[in-house]
Amino acid sequence: MEASSTAQVAEDPARLAEFEARLSRGETIEPKDWMPDRYRKQLVRMMSQHAHSEVVGMLPEGNWITRAPNLRRKLALLAKVQDEAGHGLYIYCGTETLGVDRAELIDQLLSGKAKYSSIFNYPTLTWADMGAIGWLVDGAAIVNQTMLAHASYGPYARAMVRICKEENFHKRQGYEILATLSRGTPAQKAMAQDAVNRWWWPSLMMFGPSDKDSPNSADLLRWRVKQKSNDDLRQRFVNLTVPQAQAIDLTLPDPDLKYNAETGDWEFGAIDWAEFYQVIGGNGPCNRERLGARRKAHEEGQWVRDAAAAYAEKQARRKKSAA
């Protein structure tokens, strides 16, 4: 009930109480509703980070569009990456309802102030990586997003519903790519296994550290933005994915992976969190290249954006003087 000790603004206790009561009634918070400053800030951070991830996420897969090995795969990969742009767009627009301009959010990303999902700082080294990413990375994202479709903030939840509808084809596409490779030539099978070996652990890290080590989890759970803990989601993902790997005759690079018949969970080995913090801190294999590409696109696009704005202004003036 009382404002959190790290809040900058002292919240009106009556409004705060009503806000939290609304949340416990399962109500959805909309842009014009009163909300604690900290809720607003957490949402802007979480949503913009999510949007940044979608846009940066276009790059590792974009890397293979020009080399897709047949026309169907080429079209499917293009469509998938286009969807990711669209997802970024939906979520940026959702974030803007909280009173922040997209230009400001983009500045935060490009200046290195804002984070994005660590997974996109890994390189895509073979065609099989397209399979691994669709199956594992999108698979993990789906587990997360299905939960977020019930988030307390309306624009975020609605964006997630739209995204979930589109996301399923991404995972299927990835899985189909790997299944085809796995039953293909020995070289293809080796390519598929190698990709899975490189993408498995980073996919598990996508769910973030254990909640006890995650500074924002408590707030987000209390405010019903998240409804499940990072560890719960990670376990759900593992349980879904292990049988899928078995079905296409690929192994997962975890010697400690074993099924617990009592809990029904696939228990897995220790995650190397040092690697996670390295990558999230900017020293992953591709961090510089990813941000570099986004900065270049942004800077080289400046004159284009300016041109369109200038034309619109000219047309408006012409219309006015003709009237």
Binding site: C93, E96, D101, R102, A103, I106, Q302, R305, A308, A309
Partner: peptide, 10 residues
């Protein structure tokens, strides 16, 4: 009342 956005109006 705000300056034009680099990202165009919404």
């Amino acid at each position: 009342s705000q300056p034009a956005s680099d990202q165009w109006p919404l």
